[in-house]
């Protein structure tokens, strides 16, 4: 509580806007994947339109945060709260951009009808990333930072699924060159989702810092081994494919 109640309102406005951005970003992840899986062009257009709102919200948060810093000269936890809002909103804005990029690829993927099996992995990857983002934003609301370490450590699951998906998509391309267009787009989509998970992890770190004034330990587990995945041309047996 501050003596000037307008100051409290400023801070409340910032956290409220950040949460609203979080809600939009969460929704965009869901709808972009749903558009992709069901080849739903209009839905994809909607996601692309949503991104503008997210950008506007981020600019609004930036402006307001700067104004608060200039006017109130915040210190200690108030300052961390404001800087946190700026950082989280820029992470969320990136998540929105990535979701928009996935939505844009919908049309390219839809030109050739793909079998469901291509999308299953992508769906479960997106589910993991969405869960991650939701958990982190829930902690932003409840401030139970004890739950953050587990949330952040789970990032390795996303990396592991991503690596596996990478391999699977390579195999499909190897099987039939006609798959290459769609699979390349899907590969980028998977990469985008993996990046969303990283942004969620960044947010977790920011929330932890805002609440405790300490950094989470830096040695964060890395399990994205897609950089050294190769697939033998001779052994092009589909990884986990059901025929």
């Amino acid at each position: 509580m501050h003596i000037v109640s307008a100051y409290d309102e400023d801070l409340k406005f910032l956290t409220g806007r950040v949460a609203a951005m979080g809600g939009m970003a969460e929704r965009m992840i869901e709808t972009s994947i749903s558009a992709l899986v069901h080849s739903d062009g209009p839905l994809a257009q909607k996601v692309i339109g949503e991104d503008e709102k997210l950008d506007a919200a981020q600019r609004e948060i930036d402006d307001r945060a700067l104004a608060v810093i200039a006017r109130r000269q915040p210190l200690a936890d108030d300052l961390r709260e404001i800087i946190g809002a700026i950082r989280i909103s820029s992470d969320l804005e990136r998540v929105g951009d990535l979701a928009k990029n996935n939505a844009k690829r919908t049309l390219a993927v839809a030109t050739t009808r793909q079998s469901v099996k291509l999308f299953r992995g992508l769906q479960s990857l997106a589910e993991l990333a969405a869960t991650q983002l939701k958990d982190v934003l829930d902690v932003y609301a409840s401030r139970e930072v004890s739950r953050l370490t587990a949330v952040r450590d789970r990032d390795y699951e996303i990396d592991a699924v991503y690596t596996s998906l990478f391999r699977e998509l390579l195999t499909y391309m190897m099987e039939d060159p006609r798959n290459i267009t769609a699979c390349t787009h899907l590969l980028f989509c998977a990469k985008n989702i993996e990046r969303m998970g990283d942004h969620a992890t960044n947010i977790a770190e920011t929330v932890y810092y805002v609440q405790t004034a300490e950094q989470l330990p830096v040695d964060r587990p890395k399990h994205d081994r897609s950089h050294d995945v190769t697939v033998d041309t001779g052994a092009a047996a589909p990884g986990g494919a059901a025929s």
Binding site: T15, A20, G23, E26, L137, Y140
Partner: peptide, 14 residues
């Protein structure tokens, strides 16, 4: 004590 709008972030609920 938790802010409702922080927990329920979906645009409709906001």
């Amino acid at each position: 004590g938790v802010d409702l709008m922080l927990r329920f972030r979906a645009p409709e609920l906001q």
